[in-house]
Design a protein around this nucleic acid. Structure first.
Lengths: 198, 198
DNA sequence: CGCTAACCTAGAACAAGTTTCAGTATCGAT
DNA sequence: ATCGATACTGAAACTTGTTCTAGGTTAGCG
């Protein structure tokens, strides 16, 4: 097979890369104020200095834009977390500590968190590849915190997925005001117990 | 305090109750075909024989409508599940069995499931009371499956919440085509293990 | 340099959720 | 049965995501 599944997107020119950055920056800025609703495509375009049609060429929908914004923010976060690895005794403790640190970061920008998480869970099949990228990055962060000697077992991977599910869903309950920060912590710690017991 | 938090909504007349039913029925029917996008407010109104403004008086947004539709469907499901209680040895097995039965029911109507779950996770604070009702009903189903001798401990409640988080989030990954049915089963079973080990 | 394809812009147009309004029907209490 | 309040109807208007069009700009290449 000489045909690739992904035809490798042509590399962007410098100006295109700059446009993409401006758009993502604007998106994060607007989301940081009013959350999901405040990210209005016309305003993103105008404030980024591109035409509406161009915005849609770079990000085929508002959901794509916000998921890309999340990828972007996750990279920052991943870098920050790496600088100071968690100090817990057990893998479970380290994962819980890492996720709580991420949670505290999100608490500083609740509106941004709201916009990104809502986009992520509202995404339909057309955004699956991008959502999957976010998911893989989250998995990587958790596995890194576990700091396993060897490759993870299938049971451990299942536990990590449950932790991820809990993380996402607990985040939503907090963002929509249905759960307290304390409860999110308890839920995350509870899920993390699965690690040491598999 | 003689002032109630909820001023008790005036009971609906028969015709109003009938309208409400027609609307919910139409909503479920349209969702059963095309999913979230196919539930269009104008069409729901017309097909239910009410004016658009009336539809919005009963359900202040599309999200409210779909969450109410989910409440409605959950009641049906709860009734169905009650008829044949799960037969597993342990509480964990019974909960997993119950959730997998619910999952199979959803598989028969994937588009309806998609519409309801998307609405649920996309709901913002204005829908919190309704979302909370759905959450409490889900908790009730799980606790019932556990069939505990006494009232649940705080640890058990935390485990139940993690199971609920996993259930919602795993459902989303399946609906958006990012996880197989087998994987959803594994994740649910993994989360359910928390029950017997607390 | 000059060509061509791809890219970008401004703006109109379209789609679906939501709001509004004037007029009509229904309900509950007297 | 009548009256005042509330609810319902039909239709238009408004908002914001998305698509489309016509014309100008850029990038890479001979």
């Amino acid at each position: 097979m000489t045909v690739e599944a992904k035809p490798a997107p042509p590399p962007l020119t410098e100006r295109q890369e700059a446009r993409r950055r401006r758009i993502l920056h604007t998106s994060a800025r607007l989301a940081g104020r009013g959350g999901f609703d405040a990210v209005q495509m016309r305003e993103v375009a105008e404030s980024s200095g591109v035409a509406l049609g161009t915005l849609y060429r770079y990000f085929p929908s508002k959901i794509h834009l916000l998921v890309a914004t999340m990828q972007d923010q996750l990279e920052h976060l991943h870098g920050t977390l790496r600088k100071r690895p968690p100090a817990g005794e057990s893998a479970a403790e380290r994962v819980a500590e890492t996720l709580m640190r991420a949670f505290r970061a999100l608490q500083r920008e609740p509106q941004l968190a709201d916009a990104m998480v809502r986009a992520l869970t509202f995404a339909d099949r057309s955004v699956s590849p991008e959502v999957d990228t976010v998911s893989r990055q989250t998995t990587a962060i958790i596995l890194e915190a576990m700091n396993l000697p060897g490759p993870p077992t299938p049971e451990q991977l299942a536990a990590v997925r449950v932790i991820e599910h809990t993380w996402h869903s607990a985040l939503i309950t907090w963002l929509s005001g249905r759960a307290s920060i304390a409860r999110v912590r308890i839920d995350i710690e509870t899920a993390c117990r699965l690690i040491d017991r598999t």
